[in-house]
């Protein structure tokens, strides 16, 4: 008897489409790995490489394959910074908490983003628009505190700049919607 959900017999509508894809993929991927507990991290890495995060269903399938408990898989995965458990958002925000940024108040900037979006670092907003994570040094300590928003480095961050970024995103979104509406109207 399977104690844990292995995704078998579930229709795509029952699950998030992304997660469904991940499960199908893992079914193909797992037989390629020997059933040895030493393979746990390589398996998790290859899942994340392809899908950019680990869903809990995925971790349970890995546990079944290696004959270890889901608890153990979760324990190992949460220990390492490299694994994430939420899909990345459309806009990815990385806040630097390296030494220079830490001294310059990087944690305040992180808290600003977290409070503004109502999520913690490592999480994604429910609408999948934004994800926030902490990183350790992006290599431009002279600009501390630094945040990297969608590949753009934002130096000398301040709480007001955090607000400004979201205003910009808002304007962008409104423009996209307007253009979409105009296109539809002209068709």
């Amino acid at each position: 008897m399977a104690l844990y959900n292995d995704g078998v017999g579930m229709a795509p509508s029952d699950l998030d489409h992304e997660e469904w894809e991940m499960i199908q993929d893992i079914k193909v991927l797992l037989p390629g790995f020997e059933k040895h507990r030493g393979n746990l991290i390589p398996i998790l890495q290859s899942i994340q490489e392809k899908h950019s995060y680990l869903a809990s269903t995925a971790m349970e399938m890995v546990a079944t394959h290696l004959s270890i408990t889901p608890s153990e898989v979760f324990g190992v995965a949460t220990f390492y910074n490299q694994f994430r458990f939420h899909p990345p958002g459309k806009h990815q925000i990385k806040v630097c908490l390296g030494t220079a940024c830490h001294v310059a108040g990087g944690d305040i900037i992180l808290e600003n983003f977290e409070r503004k979006l109502g999520i913690k670092d490592g999480e994604t907003t429910p609408d999948r628009e934004y994800s926030v994570e902490r990183v350790a040094c992006v290599g431009c300590c002279a600009l501390a505190p630094v945040a990297v928003v969608d590949e753009n480095v934002q130096g000398h961050m301040q709480p007001s700049k955090v607000e400004g970024l979201f205003v910009q995103f808002q304007i962008e979104r409104e423009r996209e919607e307007r253009e979409k509406a105009e296109r539809e109207a002209s068709e």
């Binding site: 270890i68 408990t69 608890s71 153990e72 979760f74 324990g75 949460t78 220990f79």
Partner: peptide, 10 residues
């Protein structure tokens, strides 16, 4: 015989 309880996070 197997780990039900485990550590998590860091």
């Amino acid at each position: 015989g197997h780990n039900l309880l485990t550590f998590a996070q860091r």
